[in-house]
């Protein structure tokens, strides 16, 4: 299974949760305490080791706040 890395541009985020709703691994959520300068709780990843780099979150982000990278690691039976 490919391993992924997600980077958030927290300042651009509007806290809409579209990324949260489409992550197949359910590891994206809004930060509970942090606020950006627009006053939104920015999205973040809670368990980056589970990320598969599918880019669903970035594809649905209307505000260009997400970049996704992928590393090919040995295939597991997952």
């Amino acid at each position: 299974m490919a391993k992924g890395l997600v980077k958030f541009n927290e300042e651009r985020c509007k806290g809409c949760e579209l990324c949260v709703s489409v992550c197949p691994k359910k590891i994206v959520m809004l930060h509970e305490t942090k606020l950006n300068s627009k006053g939104y709780h920015p999205a973040c990843v809670i368990d980056i080791d589970s990320c598969i780099g599918c880019a669903n979150c970035a594809v649905m982000c209307p505000d260009g706040a997400i970049s996704v990278y992928q590393e090919d690691v040995e295939k597991s039976d997952e």
């Binding site: 594809v59 505000d63 970049s67």
Partner: peptide, 26 residues
């Protein structure tokens, strides 16, 4: 790490005035 998704240079850096979650941005 190879990029799978990066924000296109076809979009300018300016943030949009669209409401949160508005799919105009997509």
């Amino acid at each position: 790490m190879k990029p799978v998704f990066e924000y296109t240079r076809g979009m300018l850096p300016e943030e949009t005035t669209y409401c949160p979650g508005c799919t105009h941005g997509i």
